[in-house]
Design a protein around this nucleic acid. Structure first.
Length: 573
RNA sequence: UGGGGUGUCGCCAAGCGGUAAGGCACGGGACUUUGACUCCCGCACUCGUAGGUUCAAAUCCUGCCACCCCAGCCA
């Protein structure tokens, strides 16, 4: 087959060019850090991908994954996979395996370095005690509302909590009793003592521990206090000896707090946080909240609905890991809020599938073609190439007889300008079979064309023209005697507007009512009889399709259109 | 009115004082047993804006403008 054309992402050779292309500001910073005299001189670059197990991964995560794992790969370093499970109220094991599966599917592996933030709860507790002892944290008894009030606003400084100057011993005692479960949820917090008048809201004595009697998916009921992200994350990174903690832009003003924690505990490491812009793609939404709404309200069929930008959805749609990796590489990494054209993602898929997908013939909207001068009881078998560019991809046999299915729009009673398919009197080539000339057509009572008639030229067997005459159009077909029935699902943008996140309107009002078109009674060439997913191929002249990994069965074939072929035919020109 | 960021072609994005890469999209053409692929050609006298420094600025300096993020006991 054509497997030899598939580039192994781990193969050093193929990476060369990508390394050049994907060099960006983060790599420049890392270069400085590992250079002589740099912050991490002589150290191995070590990154991590830290998803919170509270939802499914989407293409935005894929960008982060490619940056985290790709950077480690580039520098011959390591990348850990770490579940950032510090909030039991929102997290669930349900997601853990799905996340691991998606990352593996993308082509990355974390070796034996799979961790949970919750594994570090004991150490975090100790670090919190250290902070308290140093007078850098205190137990606060203000209510959530009071804390908010005292925090001030963006333009006014905050006021100190009345518990701010409580003696360290008292805070330490209280904190231990918090952990022991002596106090009600929400009644007390542990706060870092930093600066209530800082222009950076994150530094106004941020809460670093809260009481929450929620069942944790791993630690059960062992803890009733849980660390906050700003306190936990730098510690997680430090414990794992991460050198570069890469995250998205909104954490930029959390960095001073990240550094404060590292600077004030007896830290086992000194990770550096670097932020980059998250990925946006037009005509879709990326927020977990909105995706969840679409799934839970049956706007789509599930987290793996082929219209969703989730990795499960893209996989089911027929996207290949290589195409997604390549997309992430090519969009670049910067600090500019940006929205990439959906067309670019599609381009990356076409580019990959054009090389790797075998060609097949399928008639999506069948119209009967009768070749009147072809014997009614005859059947011929043609050997058709699987890939025009790669003979090594082999051939397959396709039957041909007097009655065929052709695409409804490959015939026009009255052709538009520059139409060179079938119309009365015109010649067209049936791919790999014969050149035929349209002799007439039949309409039903409603005026719909239900049958097209033609004569074939026996001298053109194989589709060649011994006399050298030009036949401009070549169309695909399926033998009515052997074609298989199939259901084909055509997808287009889930949202009809480019920016459904815009405040101009409600995203739910912008749903594209035609994002899914289900075609039944499609006629597929017989060689497609026994397939098993994943199977990507091109339906000639139409697009790239794959077998649906959920709804397709032996007796009921279901195909998803991954992406259409480009079409430069403009009827109105 | 505070703090943190960002502004280079319709969309991404190089550029790091020496006179605007590349990709996508788009338009034109060649080739074609997929109107696909491939291949040519075109596509920012200009880098948010106004000044300044310099022989020379997208790159340095100053002011202004626009947009994004921050007031969870979410991450």
């Amino acid at each position: 087959m054509i497997d030899s054309k598939i580039v192994d992402p781990a193969a050093a050779g193929g990476e060369e060019n990508n390394e050049e292309a994907s060099r960006h500001f983060i790599h420049e910073m890392i270069d400085e850090d590992i250079a002589e005299g740099g912050r991490f001189a002589g150290r191995k670059v070590h990154t991590r991908f830290p998803p919170e197990p509270n939802g499914y991964l989407h293409i935005g995560h894929a960008k982060a994954i490619v940056i985290d794992f790709g950077t480690a790969e580039k520098y011959n370093g390591l990348c850990n996979l770490r579940m950032d499970d510090t909030n039991p109220s929102k997290e669930d094991v349900e997601y853990v395996d799905a996340i691991k599966e998606d990352i593996h599917w993308l082509g990355y592996d974390w070796g034996d370095r799979f961790y949970f933030a919750s594994d570090y709860f004991p150490k975090m507790f100790d670090y919190a005690c250290e902070l308290i002892s140093k007078g850098l944290a205190y137990v606060c008894e203000q209510t959530a509302e009071q804390i908010r009030e005292y925090r001030g606003t963006l333009t006014e400084p905050g006021r100190p909590s009345p518990y701010r100057e409580r003696p360290a011993e008292e805070s330490l005692d209280l904190f231990k009793r918090m952990r022991a479960g002596e106090f009600a949820d929400g009644s007390k917090t542990l706060r870092a003592k930093i600066d209530m008048s800082s222009g950076n809201m994150n530094m106004r004595d941020p809460v670093i521990y809260r009481i929450n009697r929620a069942h944790h998916h791993r630690t059960g009921n062992e803890w009733c206090i849980y660390p906050m992200y700003d306190f936990a994350h730098p510690i997680e990174d430090a414990i794992e000896n991460i050198t570069h903690s890469l995250c998205s832009l909104e954490f930029e003003d959390h960095r001073p707090l990240y550094d404060w924690v590292i600077a004030n505990i007896t830290s086992p490491g000194n990770p550096r946080q670097i932020e980059f812009a998250r990925l946006g793609i037009n005509h879709t939404v990326m927020s977990k909240r909105k995706l969840r709404y679409l799934v839970e309200n049956d706007v789509v069929s599930g987290w793996d609905d082929p219209r969703l930008p989730t990795l499960g959805g893209l996989r089911r749609r027929g996207y290949t890991p290589a195409s997604i990796r390549n997309f992430c590489d090519r969009i670049g990494v910067s600090k500019v809020n940006s929205t990439v054209d959906y067309a670019f993602l599609e381009h990356c898929l076409r580019e990959d599938l054009n090389e790797t997908a075998n060609r097949m013939m399928a008639v999506l909207r069948p119209l009967k073609l009768i070749i009147d001068n072809y014997p009614a009881d005859k059947t011929e078998w043609f050997e058709i190439e699987n890939h025009p560019a790669y003979p090594e991809a082999g051939t397959r046999s396709v039957s041909f007889s007097r009655e065929l299915w052709i695409e409804a729009d490959d015939f026009m009673e009255e052709p538009v300008k520059r139409y060179f398919r079938l119309f009365p009197g015109n010649e067209v080539r049936l791919k790999t079979a014969y050149v035929i000339k349209c002799t007439g057509f039949v309409k039903d009572d409603n005026g719909n064309v239900i049958e097209v008639h033609a004569d074939y030229d026996p001298l053109t067997r194989g589709g060649t023209t011994p006399d050298g005459r030009k036949v401009k159009g070549t169309i695909h077909w399926a033998d009515t005697n052997t074609a298989l029935d199939a259901e084909v699902r055509l997808y287009s943008n889930l949202f009809s507007v480019a920016d459904p996140d815009s405040a101009e309107q409600d995203y739910l009002e912008c749903l594209n009512p035609d994002s899914l078109e289900v075609l039944t009674g499609c006629k597929i060439e017989c060689s497609l009889a026994d397939l098993k997913p994943p199977a990507n191929f091109q339906f000639m002249r139409q697009g790239y399709f794959c077998l649906d990994n959920k709804d397709s069965s032996e007796g009921h074939l279901v195909f998803n259109r991954s992406v259409s072929l480009k079409d430069s035919f403009k009827p109105n020109k």
